[in-house]
C-alpha cells in the first residue's frame, strides 16, 4: 500500500513536471488551446470515472452538471454582473444541490434503469437550458461571458489559462487519489464487488454512492465553469445527450477505475477528432470503428491494454 502510494506520488510529480514542461515547450496557441480542452475533459472524466469505475454506477446524464456549472456562472456574470470568481461558488453549489436532490431517488435504481434515470434527468436539464431563453439565450447560446482575471492579469492571454486548467487537473488528481486510498475508497470498491455483501458488513452503500455522485457532479460543474470562461460562449448543444455519451466513452476507453486511465481517455478522445480532420466525410466511420475496435480488443481500456502488451513483450 505504502509502496504503491509512493509510486503514485512520484507519478503525480512527474505529471506536474510534464505539464510545466509542455507549457514552456508548446509555444503555439493552437496546441495550448487543445491542451486546455484536454484538461477540461480530464476533470470531467475523473469525476465520472470515480462514479463508474469505483462504484459501478453508470450516468448518462453527466453533461447536465457540466452545463449547470457553465450556465450558472455565465448567467450570473452576464446578467447580474457578478465577477467570475464570485460566480464560481454559486455554480458549484447549485450543481452539488441538484446532485443531492436527484441522487437520492435515482441512485436507488441500478443497471439500465439507472442509466435511463440519469439519461432522463440529463434530457430535462438540456431542455430547460434551451427553453429558459430569457436567461440562457435559448438555442442561439449565451455570448459575452467575461474571461477570468487575477488582479489585472487577464487569464485568457497567453498560457495563463492553460496553467489554471492544468492546476485544477492536478488538484483534482490529488484529491481523487486521496479519496480512493481512504476509508471511502475501500467502501466504494466493496460496493463495486458486491453491493449486497457490502451492505451486510455494515457499509452504508446509499450514503457512499451519493457522496461519490455529488463529488463527480462537483467536478463536472468545475469543468463547466472553466469551459464557459475559456470560450466566452455557451449553447445548449454542448451539454446534450451526446455530450454525456462522449464523457462515458472517455471513461471506458481510457480504462475504468484508474485516474490515469481517465487522463488517457480524455486526451485521446479530445485529440482524435483533431487528427481525423484528414478523413473529411469518412471521419464518423473511422471514429466509430476506432471505438468498436478498442472495446473489442482492449475491453479494459487502452491504459490496461497497452500495459498488458508491454508486459507481454518484456516477458517474451
Amino acid at each position: 500500500m505504502t509502496q504503491s502510494s509512493l509510486h503514485e506520488t512520484v507519478r503525480i510529480g512527474l505529471l506536474t513536471g510534464a505539464v510545466a514542461a509542455a507549457g514552456i515547450l508548446f509555444d503555439n496557441a493552437y496546441h495550448i488551446q487543445v491542451l486546455v480542452f484536454i484538461g477540461i475533459n480530464t476533470i470531467l472524466t475523473l469525476g465520472l470515472n470515480l462514479l463508474m469505475g469505483y462504484t459501478g454506477q453508470i450516468s448518462l446524464g453527466h453533461a447536465a452538471f457540466y452545463g449547470i456549472g457553465a450556465y450558472t456562472s455565465a448567467i450570473l456574470t452576464v446578467h447580474f454582473q457578478f465577477s467570475p470568481w464570485a460566480a464560481l461558488f454559486p455554480s458549484l453549489g447549485l450543481a452539488v444541490l441538484v446532485a443531492l436532490i436527484v441522487g437520492i431517488p435515482t441512485l436507488k435504481l441500478s443497471g439500465y434503469y439507472l442509466a435511463m434515470g440519469t439519461l432522463g434527468f440529463g434530457m430535462i436539464v438540456f431542455i430547460v437550458f434551451r427553453e429558459l431563453d430569457f436567461w440562457t439565450g435559448g438555442s442561439s447560446g449565451l455570448a459575452g461571458i467575461p474571461s477570468l482575471k487575477i488582479g489585472s492579469v487577464d487569464l485568457m492571454s497567453g498560457r495563463n489559462f492553460y496553467y489554471l486548467v492544468w492546476g485544477a487537473v492536478l488538484g483534482t488528481l490529488v484529491v481523487s487519489r486521496r479519496l480512493i486510498e481512504s476509508r471511502v475508497g475501500r467502501a466504494l470498491r466493496s460496493i463495486h464487488g458486491s453491493e449486497h455483501a457490502a451492505m451486510a458488513i455494515g457499509v452504508n452503500t446509499q450514503a457512499y454512492k451519493l457522496q461519490v455522485f455529488v463529488f463527480s457532479a462537483f467536478l463536472a460543474a468545475l469543468a463547466g465553469f472553466l469551459y464557459a470562461h475559456c470560450i466566452g460562449f455557451i449553447s445548449p448543444g454542448s451539454f446534450d445527450f451526446m455530450a454525456s455519451v462522449r464523457m462515458v466513452t472517455m471513461v471506458v476507453i481510457g480504462g475504468m477505475a484508474s485516474i490515469w486511465g481517465a487522463l488517457l481517455g480524455a486526451s485521446l478522445l479530445t485529440l482524435l477528432p483533431e487528427w481525423l480532420h484528414a478523413f473529411a466525410d469518412y471521419e464518423m466511420i473511422v471514429y466509430g470503428l476506432i471505438l468498436m475496435l478498442v472495446m473489442i480488443f482492449l475491453p479494459q481500456g487502452l491504459l490496461r491494454g497497452l500495459l498488458d502488451i508491454y508486459e507481454r513483450s518484456r516477458n517474451a
Binding site: 471506458v252 466511420i285 471514429y287 466509430g288 470503428l289 476506432i290 471505438l291 472495446m295
Partner: peptide
C-alpha cells in the same frame, strides 16, 4: 463494454 461498442456502431452506421 458492449454498450460502448454499440455506441461506436451507431456512429459508424450514421457515417
Amino acid at each position: 463494454v458492449l454498450i460502448i461498442i454499440t455506441v461506436g456502431a451507431s456512429i459508424f452506421l450514421r457515417g
